[in-house]
Deep mutational scan, measured.
Amino acid sequence: RNRTTFSTFQLEELEKVFQKTHYPDVYAREQLALRTDLTEARVQVWFQNRRAKWRK
């Protein structure tokens, strides 16, 4: 699988949710996936990576 390149819009949407919660539930991830045209799995992995970055 190739690396996912996120658009500016997608990143803004993802970051917006991350500001509210670092652990969105499955429903929130599904909604975000639909809004950003990503799969729920991509959204989940983005949050994992974003939390790792945030901890540093």
Rank of each mutant, 00 (worst) to 15 (best):
R42F: 04
E40I: 06
T39A: 07
T4H: 15
F47G: 00
R50F: 02
R51M: 05
T36K: 00
A52Q: 07
Q44R: 11
H22R: 08
A33V: 07
V17M: 12
T4N: 12
W54F: 13
T5Q: 05
V17E: 07
N49G: 13
K56A: 07
R51P: 00
T5A: 12
F9P: 06
T21H: 14
W54Q: 14
V17G: 10
E15L: 01
L14N: 02
E13H: 05
F47T: 03
A41S: 09
T36G: 03
K20R: 10
Q31A: 14
Y27E: 14
V43P: 02
L11R: 08
S7D: 10
F18E: 02
E12K: 05
R42P: 02
K56F: 11
A52S: 11
Q44N: 13
W46M: 00
F18A: 04
S7C: 07
R50K: 06
Y23M: 04
S7L: 06
R35T: 08
F6D: 07
V45T: 13
T4R: 11
V17Q: 12
R51L: 07
T36Y: 03
T39W: 00
Y23I: 01
A33S: 09
V45S: 13
E15H: 03
N49I: 04
R51C: 04
D25V: 03
K56Y: 07
D25F: 03
K56I: 02
A52M: 14
E13V: 03
V45P: 00
A28E: 12
R42M: 13
V45L: 13
N49V: 07
K53L: 07
W46G: 02
E12S: 12
Q31I: 07
E15Y: 00
K20S: 12
S7Q: 07
E15S: 02
K20N: 04
L14R: 01
Q19P: 05
T21N: 12
Q31E: 13
A41N: 11
E40W: 03
R1G: 15
K53E: 15
E30K: 07
A28S: 08
V45C: 09
L14C: 06
F9E: 12
T8N: 11
Q10H: 06
E12I: 03
R29V: 14
P24V: 02
K20W: 05
K56Q: 09
F18V: 02
Y23R: 06
K53N: 15
K20F: 06
L11E: 07
A33N: 01
Y27G: 10
K20L: 14
E13L: 03
